[in-house]
Amino acid sequence: MMNEQRREFIKKTTLGVFAGLGAASGLVPAFSLEKTALPVWDEKPVPGKIRWGMLIDTRKCKEDCQQCIAACHHEHNVPAFKNRREEIRWIWKNSYRNVFPTADIAGVSKEIQNRTFISLCNHCADSPCTQICPTGATFKRWDGIVEIDYHRCIGCRFCMPACPYGSLSFNWEDPRTEIVDPVTAYPTRQQGVVEKCNFCSNRLVKGLLPACVEACPEQALVFGDLNDPRSDIRMLLESNVTMQRKPELGTKPSVFYII
C-alpha cells in the first residue's frame, strides 16, 4: 500500500519535473508541437537586405535519387496525391525540354537532354504570381522569398496560370487524408488554398539550411544570400556559367542551374 502510493508519487513528481524543465527550456513541451525557442533572426528584418537564392549543379544530380523531394515533402507535410490532376508538389524532377523549353536545344548533348532537372519555385524578383494575387496572399517577403500566406489565400487560383514554371499547386480536396508520414513541427494546408515551395523559411529562421539542400547526398544544391558578394553561392555564380529558367520573361528567378 505504502509502496504503491510512493511509486505513484515519484512517478508524478519526476514527470512533473521533467515536463517543467522541458517546457522551461522550450525543448520538450508536454506534447510535441512546433518548437518554441526564440529564432535566430529575432530582430525585425530589413526589407531587401537579403535575397535568398539557390544554385543547382545538375552535373552532380543523380537520376534515380529522390532524396531532396522526399525530405522536402516530409518536412512540410506535402500530401502525396497519386493522380496528376490533383498532384501537389513543392520540388520535383523534370526533363531538360520541360525545364528549359525555350532554351536552344541544338547545341545540347544527348546526355544533358536525358538528364533530370530539379524544379522548384524560382522565388522570382519580379514574380507574376504576386502581381496577380488579389489579396496579397502570395507576396514577396523582405528576404526575397515568395511566400504564400495560407491564412489569407482565397483559392482563386489566378496565380497558377500566372506562374510560368508551374510551381503552384492547388488543394483540390482535403490534403490531410493523403499525408503519408505527418510531422508535427510544420502545419498542413487545407482544402481550397494554393501552396508551393517556401524556400524553407521555416528552417531558415532556426538557422538551418533548406531541407532539400541538406538532404542532397551529392551536395548538388547550394543555398545562400545573392546580395552578399562573399557568399558561397555568389562565388560559384561568378566562377561558373549558369542558366535561369525562361529568362526572356523577365521574372528574374533566384534559382540558377549549372548545366
Binding site: 489569407r152 489565400c153 482565397i154 483559392g155 482563386c156 487560383r157 492547388f170 481550397g192 488554398v193
Partner: peptide, 8 residues
C-alpha cells in the same frame, strides 16, 4: 470558382 469563398 473560389476554393475558400468564405474569405471573399
Amino acid at each position: 470558382d473560389m476554393g475558400k469563398p468564405d474569405r471573399l
